[in-house]
C-alpha cells in the first residue's frame, strides 16, 4: 500500500486505517484502533521515499478516551502529520467535537492535522477553531452534480420551480465567474436538460464558495477574529434566508 503511494508520487501518503460505521461498539472501536495503529507502524517501516510526507490516521470512533490513546500511539511511532479518520459518519456535532478535541490535545502543535472527509461549511469553521489544518470532502463537487448550490444564505436546489424565471445570480454576493455571468434560470435549465455545462458551472461555483470560505477563515485567524467571522457567517444566513 505504501509502495503503491510511493509509485504514484503522492506529495502526502496516508497509512491504511479501519473506519467503522456509527455507532460502533467500544470493543469493536478498540480493536479497529489497535489494527490501525499496527498498520501505521508497518507503513512507517515500509517507507522508502524521503521526499514524501506520511500521515498516520487516528481512529477510535466517537470515544474520546480511545481517540486520545490512538493519538498517543501514533505520535510515539512518529509521522509528518496526523489525520482524524472515521468522524462525521452520522454522530451528533457535539459527539464529533469531543472526539476531535480528545485527539487534538494529544497531537503535537508542530504537525499538521487533517480531518478526513469533512465537511459542510459549518464543519470547516468549527474544525478550524478546534485546530484542524486540512479537510477534504466530496460535498461541493457531488452537490454540484446533483444541483445543490452553496450560497452565503444557505443551500439552493437549482431545479426548484421558483427559479424558472429568476434572472438573479445564484448568490448575489459571490464573485465567481458563474455568478457574474449566469442566472439561476439558466442554471436551472441546464440542470433539467442534463447538459454537461450545468454540472461544470455548478461545480465551479461550489468550489469557489469553499475556496472563499477557507480564505476568509485564514484571514480571520491571522487577524484574531475567528469568533467574529463565525458570528457573521451565521448572522448572514439568518437575515438572508430566501
Amino acid at each position: 500500500m505504501i509502495e503503491v503511494q510511493e509509485s504514484l508520487g503522492a506529495d502526502v501518503a496516508m497509512t491504511l486505517d479501519e473506519c467503522l460505521r456509527y455507532p460502533a461498539a467500544e470493543d469493536a472501536a478498540e480493536a479497529a484502533l489497535l489494527r490501525t495503529t499496527q498498520w501505521a507502524r508497518r507503513s512507517r517501516d515500509a517507507r522508502r521515499r524521503s521526499d514524501q510526507l506520511l500521515f498516520g490516521i487516528v481512529q477510535g470512533a466517537h470515544y474520546p478516551d480511545l481517540r486520545a490513546r490512538a493519538a498517543v500511539s501514533l505520535v510515539e511511532i512518529g509521522f509528518d502529520g496526523y489525520a482524524l479518520g472515521g468522524l462525521s459518519v452520522g454522530e451528533d456535532k457535539e459527539v464529533m467535537r469531543a472526539a476531535l478535541d480528545a485527539a487534538v490535545a494529544e497531537l503535537p502543535e508542530s504537525a499538521p492535522r487533517y480531518l478526513m472527509g469533512v465537511g459542510t461549511p459549518e464543519d470547516l469553521i468549527e474544525g478550524v477553531a478546534h485546530g484542524v489544518d486540512l479537510f477534504d470532502c466530496v460535498m461541493p463537487t457531488r452537490h454540484g452534480r446533483t444541483g445543490w448550490l452553496f450560497t452565503s444564505f444557505g443551500r439552493v436546489l437549482i431545479k426548484n420551480a421558483q427559479y424558472a424565471r429568476d434572472e438573479s445570480p445564484v448568490d448575489p454576493i459571490c464573485s465567481c465567474l458563474v455568478c457574474r455571468s449566469y442566472s439561476r434560470a439558466y442554471l436551472r435549465h441546464l440542470f433539467l436538460a442534463k447538459e454537461m455545462l450545468g454540472i461544470r458551472l455548478n461545480t465551479l461555483h461550489n468550489l469557489h464558495y469553499f475556496a472563499t470560505l477557507m480564505t476568509g477563515l485564514r484571514d480571520a485567524v491571522r487577524q484574531g477574529r475567528l469568533a467574529e467571522f463565525r458570528a457573521q457567517f451565521y448572522a448572514y444566513r439568518e437575515t438572508c434566508q430566501t
Binding site: D11, V12, D51, Q52, L53, G81, V104, E109, P112, V128, A129, H130, G131, D133, L134, L217, R218, V221, R222, G224, L226, A227
Partner: peptide, 12 residues
Amino acid sequence: HSRARVSELWTA
C-alpha cells in the same frame, strides 16, 4: 481565542 492556526505545508 481558539486552537486555530495559520500554517504552511511544504510538499515536494
